[in-house]
Design a binder for these strands. Sequence first.
DNA 1: GAGGCAGAATTACATGTGTAATCGACAGGG
DNA 2: CCCTGTCGATTACACATGTAATTCTGCCTC
Lengths: 121, 121
Amino acid sequence: MERIAEGEYAVMEVLWDEAPLTAADVAARVPVDRGWSLATVKTMLSRLLAKGVLSHEEDGRRYLYRPAIRREDYVAEESGRLIDRMFGGRVTPLVAQLAARDRLTPADIAEIEKLLKELKS
Amino acid sequence: MERIAEGEYAVMEVLWDEAPLTAADVAARVPVDRGWSLATVKTMLSRLLAKGVLSHEEDGRRYLYRPAIRREDYVAEESGRLIDRMFGGRVTPLVAQLAARDRLTPADIAEIEKLLKELKS
DNA sequence: GAGGCAGAATTACATGTGTAATCGACAGGG
DNA sequence: CCCTGTCGATTACACATGTAATTCTGCCTC
């Protein structure tokens, strides 16, 4: 699966959230703080099409875009890449790291424990 | 802190592992499968210097390079970025994701549980 | 002392990415 | 029927990155 650049990812998010959409719809839904013009969004859509992570169907003389890959799959791949690169492929150091950085609230801890408990059963 | 590109990161790893080193030393220690020439490594070193994540001291007419940032700090930042982007800043979904993808072995689970237990005390 | 070698600095060049502007086709309103 | 607005397609351009080659500058060797 092709890499998706940071900006392109924002476009994917829109379509994972709601699809199919026209280019204009996508542009309207992209976070405003990106400050993108419609042209920019169209460029992104073309590139994502070229990468094969979007598909489009004709709707009159417009296109309707929709994701061609599942969000979970992409997220899994990216997470895996990070874990491989920075933690030697081991998950525990990542969790340890997060813990040490206070990224874990007591609620998080409780939730994760519950999750793990279920996993064991 | 400046972003460090994928390839540049490999150079940082070398120096986090052992420093200070000359450019030639770094080149010799970079994973062979990168297939980099000495020139390439030197380019990386310059760029990392420019980014302020390395420092160098003169040693005769060579330089000795050493990291200017701590590995844990950079890793923390990158992990945080990923979690923000893909998991809305929440750690639990990440762990859930890893679990669902069978990236957690029983040993991992045990280790994480122990970690969390310590955190609570 | 001249030639070559070792280092860093400078330059190079293709591809990816952010961020558009422009072009060409066409559909709908007047 | 023509104008204008709307689409996608094509082109643009700067900066980052991967991957070097070339140049400049001394030190070491014969």
